Deep mutational scan, measured.
Amino acid sequence: MEVRTIKVFTTVDNINLHTQVVDMSMTYGQQFGPTYLDGADVTKIKPHNSHEGKTFYVLPNDDTLRVEAFEYYHTTDPSFLGRYMSALNHTKKWKYPQVNGLTSIKWADNNCYLATALLTLQQIELKFNPPALQDAYYRARAGEAANFCALILAYCNKTVGELGDVRETMSYLFQHANLDSCKRVLNVVCKTCGQQQTTLKGVEAVMYMGTLSYEQFKKGVQIPCTCGKQATKYLVQQESPFVMMSAPPAQYELKHGTFTCASEYTGNYQCGHYKHITSKETLYCIDGALLTKSSEYKGPITDVFYKENSYTTTIK
């Protein structure tokens, strides 16, 4: 009895394709271990004539594949690729409408935090270190965002349907971005203890939790000093293409032309909904596939993004 075979390709990165001759009487799992086709788990399936010449994702289970996976995804987590594939199996079914010149995501599976993050990423200057993220990001900007969303979920250790947080998501993504040249110098002034300067680099240099107003941050924000008295913390120097200011959701007025974009969060910790506000020729609110415009805006804002380049204080 002759062994019926077909020729397929296996890959971990969709760049390096490895030619395989597979036995049609055995499952993919018996031949390769966990195997995925377009995100779908085909591990328990036997090869079919229609699979001839198709590319299958496999887990990096030998040295060659491990090197290829690390170079593309910059992670050695053995569960990463499987999590990416199972997320992709959902995100490829989502709709990605162009809204006001940006790629958004039609609401499904509690994905409003991903839509808000995706919209924000198209408006701030950011370059990702893992080629996987950078490639998928370019495709997302062009309207094909399924891979990018699935990668975000995998890097953030999230599953489809789980509630997510924009600030946490951005923080994970910033860790995989090139923020080497970003720098922030802060000064804390206390009447009792004097003053202390701190220099922050990388992710810490672009994120701040405690106030939404970048102007206020430049002037000074009140913080408790270690001595128990009130101290003032203010920005001395900022070198970065953008800054992200966050605070627990509270009524906040966004003035046209003073910011790049913002995240609105309605609801409580267990259950809520994100919308995205962007400042173009007027203010726009993007909620999944829905767009509304207004000249002014007041609502429960939790993150505001500002364009920056270089700032030095005039406070002496």
Rank of each mutant, 00 (worst) to 15 (best):
C190R: 04
L254D: 03
D165F: 07
Y113M: 02
T91Y: 03
K307C: 13
D23N: 11
P249N: 00
K54T: 14
K158F: 03
V21E: 14
D287A: 00
Q238G: 03
Q216N: 10
S50P: 10
S25M: 11
N100G: 12
A262L: 00
Y297S: 02
E204S: 11
Q134M: 09
T211Q: 06
G272N: 00
S181V: 07
V189L: 09
Y234Q: 08
V21T: 14
T292W: 06
H74K: 08
S181Y: 12
G257N: 08
P249Y: 00
L290G: 12
L81M: 11
M26H: 13
C193P: 04
K191N: 13
N61P: 06
Q122E: 04
L212K: 04
D23R: 12
Y84P: 01
T27L: 09
A87P: 00
A142G: 10
K46Q: 15
I15R: 10
E308Q: 07
Y36I: 03
C156R: 01
S213G: 02
E264W: 04
A132H: 04
D13I: 07
A69D: 09
I15V: 09
A40L: 14
E281G: 08
G164H: 03
M244F: 02
Y36P: 00
Y28R: 06
S240T: 04
K95G: 08
M26W: 14
K233E: 12
Y214I: 11
I152D: 05
S79C: 14
K127W: 06
A87Y: 06
S294G: 10
F70M: 12
E68Q: 09
N14A: 14
A69S: 10
E204M: 08
P47S: 05
L37H: 13
A231I: 03
K7D: 13
I315F: 15
S263I: 12
C156D: 00
T282G: 15
K316L: 15
T19P: 15
M207P: 03
P249W: 01
G29R: 07
R141D: 04
Q175P: 10
A262G: 00
E68V: 03
C182A: 09
S50I: 13
L163W: 08
R83G: 05
G82P: 15
K233Q: 14
A250Y: 09
K298I: 14
R4K: 13
N61G: 13
L153H: 03
T232A: 04
D180G: 10
Q134R: 13
I301L: 07
V203M: 11
E162M: 07
Y284I: 15
I45F: 15
L118E: 01
T314F: 13
T10R: 11
T43V: 06
T11H: 15
Q251H: 15
L290W: 13
L235E: 02
Q230G: 06
T55W: 07
P34L: 11
K46F: 11
I152M: 10
P300G: 06
V3M: 14
N49E: 12
H90Q: 15
K183I: 11
L133K: 07
P131N: 02
Q197K: 11
T266R: 08
E68L: 06
F148R: 02
C225E: 01
V243C: 05
V236H: 04
G29N: 06
L179T: 02
Y138E: 15
Q270R: 09
F128L: 06
Y274D: 00
L186W: 11
T226L: 10
C285W: 00
T159L: 09
N268A: 15
Q230S: 12
L186H: 09
K275N: 04
S104A: 11
H74I: 07
S86D: 15
A108K: 07
F32H: 08
S295H: 13
P78Q: 09
Y311W: 10
D287G: 01
K92W: 03
K7H: 15
Q175N: 09
H276I: 06
V21R: 13
Y252C: 11
A262P: 01
F80W: 04
L173Q: 01
G33F: 04
Q230F: 15
G257C: 04
T302K: 01
H276Q: 03
S279P: 04
G29C: 09
G210P: 04
F305S: 00
D13H: 04
L81Q: 07
L153P: 03
Q230P: 12
V236P: 03
